[in-house]
């Protein structure tokens, strides 16, 4: 190329490609494991609407803006929306999935320690998007 040999650039490009292949492979493997929902996960129905979250447990109990779960159990969120797109987010547990009207999106998590965590909306949804917040309470098993 333009009179001089260009092998340093080819080596460099090869290194970049190798790096990207490595990142891609790791990400693929991690995502594959993460998406595998445990069979015994308890279902929690999550509904987003302007501008609060509603949770419905398997036994029919409902909570608004607060979610109580037990440590050590696996939970499967079925996320939907009543109006516009929201995004259900428990950042501390890297739970993030959009609530899209007309669809049910599924993500799961298993809290591993007792504590309180923020729940928030991560997709712009209008006037009070900034305060579409809630709290997750991870508690000791009741029995």
């Amino acid at each position: 190329m333009s009179g001089h040999s260009n092998w340093p650039e080819w080596i460099y490009v090869a290194v970049v490609i190798a790096l990207m292949a490595w990142v891609g492979a790791e990400a693929w493997e991690a995502e594959r494991l993460i998406e595998h929902v445990p069979a015994d996960a308890e279902v929690i129905k999550v509904t987003g609407q302007q501008w609060f979250w509603t949770f419905e447990h398997e036994d029919g109990t409902k909570e608004i803006g607060e979610l109580h779960v037990e440590v050590g159990k696996a939970y499967k969120f079925e996320i939907m929306s009543k109006d516009v797109i929201h995004s259900f987010n428990i950042h501390d547990y890297v739970v993030l999935l959009d609530a899209v009207p007309g669809r049910v999106n599924v993500v799961w998590f298993a809290p591993d320690a007792v504590g309180e965590h923020d729940i928030q909306c991560r997709e712009y949804c209008g006037l009070i998007h900034y305060n579409m917040r809630g709290t997750l309470y991870v508690e000791e098993p009741s029995t």
Binding site: E26, A27, W28, R122
Partner: peptide, 16 residues
């Protein structure tokens, strides 16, 4: 950008 693209990491960064 590479971090955003790696899908499990994007769930930390997306829309933040």
């Amino acid at each position: 950008g590479v971090v955003n693209s790696a899908m499990p990491l994007d769930f930390s960064t997306h829309d933040s």
